[in-house]
Design a binder for these strands. Structure first.
Length: 502
DNA sequence: CGACTTTGACCTGCGC
DNA sequence: GCGCAGGTCAAAGTCG
């Protein structure tokens, strides 16, 4: 499959080694005489080569077919010996096939085990999340009591609480030092997802210690000077999600507040700027813009990492983007040219998807693009990319996690015959256990993305389960349909027509 | 009335 | 230094 330059390989051994190899392999050194007689001239006559081949009966064919082929000139006219060889070949073939069957069976078994382990891991993680949440709540209560007794204990308790902030464990893909640099002990409650039906208590940053700051102030984390560069780079790293959606914005479980809109050069559609409002001082921002070539494609670019607990639905997208950004950065930092191996990243992000993961090295920010618009349509593979982008097509294989994706928002896609994850599917009625072919499934998924922007978050949830093991099924659909009321397109595109000269 | 959006102005970085 | 483009601010407007 990979072209191998034999000459290059030959170059890797010394002449002495090469000579030894040739003797061992029974090869002929066409250059030996020439080398001996004339050190500088390596002229080989074609006749010499042919004669040498005849003499040593060198077979340069690959002989990949082991079946009996009567017309094979190499065996013609050698009846008895060819029969023996054929039998031997058949025997070897049978052995190989047996071996292949064994390996296939083992492979299937391992796949099943992997699926089971993944599911168990997800379940355990959810349990852990809930338990730690409860523990954190109780600690917060005790902290409040301690504060009334002795204010000096606050720091110690904060230290403890840092370890107890659980929901962020899925977000801890970034260096942990940016976590909770809060100086304020002010608390507020956030309504969690209906799935958890709990109140999540978060420490709220005072404006003075705000992690994120406007342009005028440095956007760096103030508490650990040594990691400012890391934090700055982390903030710069971006994850872009391309999704086909008629909705103005994909729902990712977070609350966003629009703080600006701008006409970007080269795109008649305006770009909207959103800031996460789930916690004061959350540095996460996102940009939403329609694709210039195809207005049905919504490009959402995330930047930064949440510094507060998130509902499961938001965890999915947040950890996906965070993981992608982190991997991008860790890779870019470790490679000389600032680019990591695109194959590695892309496969890590979407290891079993037919979608595209694109890494852009274009300045100023390293960007990972998760392209969820890719359909089984070969034309889409011809989409031109900027020269600084790599595009990695993935083999279409039906991953176990895919069923999680497809089942995530099943209620929204009635009639698609999608199953939940493998463990859940076992308990479903028969008609729900029927798995569609993967091609159908993929088409359905694409249709679902097109039909409902929430699906994008569901897909991200599954991606997350691949990356970090969080359970996308833990999300409640209701949390996905959050109160994002901003409308880049309806408002803006109407205005866009008046901006058309731009 | 509070939360949110809109939109013009401003700031910053970059290329020339 | 200047102009441009991206990004952000903040006052005004809108909405429930």
């Amino acid at each position: 499959m990979f072209p191998v330059n034999l000459n290059d390989r030959e170059d890797q051994v010394s002449p002495q080694q090469a000579d030894g190899k040739r003797k061992f392999l029974g090869e002929v050194d066409f250059f030996a005489d020439k080398r001996r007689s004339s050190d500088d001239t390596y002229v080989v006559k074609k006749e010499d080569v042919e004669a040498a081949k005849r003499e040593l009966n060198v077979n340069t064919g690959l002989q990949l077919l082991t079946g009996n082929n009567g017309s094979d000139p190499s065996t013609a006219g050698d009846g008895i010996s060819s029969d023996i060889e054929n039998k031997k070949a058949r025997k070897e073939l049978a052995e190989l096939q047996g071996e292949l069957d064994r390996m296939n069976a083992e492979n299937q078994k391992l796949k099943g085990m992997l699926t089971q382990v993944t599911n168990n891991y997800s379940t355990l993680q959810m349990h852990l999340t809930v338990l730690m949440q409860q523990q954190k709540n109780s600690k917060t209560e005790s902290l409040r009591e301690n504060q009334t007794i002795d204010g000096k204990l606050e720091d110690n308790n904060n230290q403890e609480n840092r370890g107890a902030i659980v929901p962020r464990q899925f977000l801890e893909l970034v260096p942990g030092d940016q976590e909770l640099s809060h100086s304020s002990s002010e608390e507020r409650t956030l309504s969690g997802s209906p799935a958890q039906n709990k109140k999540m208590i978060v420490r709220e940053e005072s404006p003075a210690s705000e992690d994120w700051a406007p342009n005028k102030a440095p956007k760096l984390n103030p508490f650990k000077p040594g990691d400012q560069a890391t934090e700055a780079t982390m903030r710069k790293a971006r994850v872009s999600v391309r999704a086909r959606s008629e909705a103005p914005m994909i729902s990712d479980g977070c609350q966003w507040r629009k703080y600006g809109q701008k006409m970007a050069k080269g795109n008649p559609c305006p770009r909207a700027y959103y800031r996460c409002t789930m916690a004061v001082g959350c540095p996460v921002r996102k940009q939403v813009q329609r694709c210039a070539e195809d207005r049905a494609i919504l490009i959402t670019t995330y930047e930064g990492t949440h510094n507060h607990p998130l509902p499961p639905a938001a965890v999915a997208m947040a950890s996906t983007t965070s993981a992608a950004a982190n991997m991008l950065l860790s890779g870019s930092m470790s490679s000389a040219d600032g680019l990591m191996n695109p194959n590695f990243l892309a496969r890590t992000i979407l290891p079993c998807s037919s979608n595209m993961a694109t890494i852009s090295a274009s300045a100023p920010f390293p960007t990972v693009t998760l392209d969820l618009t890719q359909q089984p349509n070969p034309l889409q593979f011809q989409r031109p990319l900027p020269p600084t982008q790599f595009q990695v097509p993935f083999a279409v294989t039906p991953p176990p996690q895919m069923s999680q994706v497809l089942g995530y928002n099943q209620s929204k896609f009635s009639g698609l015959q999608l199953s939940r994850d493998s463990t859940e599917a076992a308990s479903l009625p028969n008609e729900e256990q029927q798995h569609p072919s993967f091609a159908d499934t993929l088409s359905a998924a694409t249709a679902a993305i097109t039909a409902d922007p929430n699906f994008t978050a569901a897909l991200a949830a599954a991606i997350t389960s691949i990356i970090g093991g969080s359970n996308p099924n833990s999300g409640d659909n209701n949390t996905m349909a959050n109160n994002n009321s901003a409308d880049v397109n309806t408002n803006s595109s109407n205005k866009t027509s008046s901006f058309s000269g731009n």
